[in-house]
Amino acid sequence: MNRSLLIYACKRVVYAVPTILGLLVLVFVISRVIPADPAALVAGEMATPQQVEALRKQYRFDEPLPVQLVLYLKRLAKGDMGKSLYSGRKVFDDLVDRFPATLELTLVSMVLSILIGVPLGILAALKRNSVLDHLLRGVTVAGLAIASFWLGIMLQLFFSMWLGITPLGGRIGMSVDPPASITGMYILDALLTLNGRALWSAAVHMILPSLTLAFASFATITRFTRSGVLDVVQQDFITYERAMGLPPRLVIYKYLLRNAIIATVTQIGLLFGLLLAGTVVIETVFDWPGLGLYAFNAIVLSDYQAILGVTLLAGIAYVTVNLLVDIALSLIDPRKAET
């Protein structure tokens, strides 16, 4: 890694900070517009108005918004994400507990969609207008058109309810003890502890959620890889080089492959966002106790600290992945770092 690359990486990191700060402010402002009274939530369904008032003071909900924001940022700087109003636990603990479930689901889905999507996308572009291309075009267009919650429900209906061969939801069988926690990801932990029973159960539970989640992103990545490769194919310099008499095969390797990889790596950032968003729905459908389900519950329950926490985490994760993508791109294509 040379110096200009390092400078570029640093620059990108510095750039990410105001984005996350802005995100925080955005979410914070919206969260205070939510109609429900946060103090009444803390107090619980049986509380009297006096109790609600006391809690309002305790949590300083009566302060002006900017003051509340500063208070929040200050605490955040100390690594304190506050407490979930509803569960009474530290948001940080909630997030740590839920994160591995979502990470596992997302990783499996991402690997699935890349392994299938990228090769198919390149193939479709190179064999443009072949039967394969048309077939893939149909499949990917369909993949982007299916509502993932509906796909999940249909898969449940068919495979779980009618055929009875896959579980309906959850991460592991009811009567199976989860593997000893090392990473929190059941499949990995089961492998590490050589727990065959847990491995089998966790893997079986992973099938439907990961397929559902991967379906849309598989379609996206195929589609974008195809059009990415096509864009390159149609760019003038390739035509030029062909005109200059370079053998087509060399042209393909020299430009196409590299540019296809660039296009794909670029898509990983988008893909990650897609998957992250998908988890909210998929986890709701499959009762997957991860961040997506947590985020949804936090939002419908107007659990402010939790919303801020999970949004922050999603934002940081997304920004980080995109940062890594950019840096990876600059490694593949050093010209990027110069701009």
């Binding site: 105001p18 996350i20 995100l23 968003a277 934002g315």
Partner: peptide, 24 residues
């Protein structure tokens, strides 16, 4: 672009759920 980045730094569905719920 900074502002756009802020909006794009969180999955759209999550932000949309959040907003829709806030507006009632």
């Amino acid at each position: 672009m900074r502002v756009a980045d802020i909006f794009l730094s969180i999955p759209q569905v999550i932000l949309a759920i959040f907003l829709a719920q806030s507006f009632r």
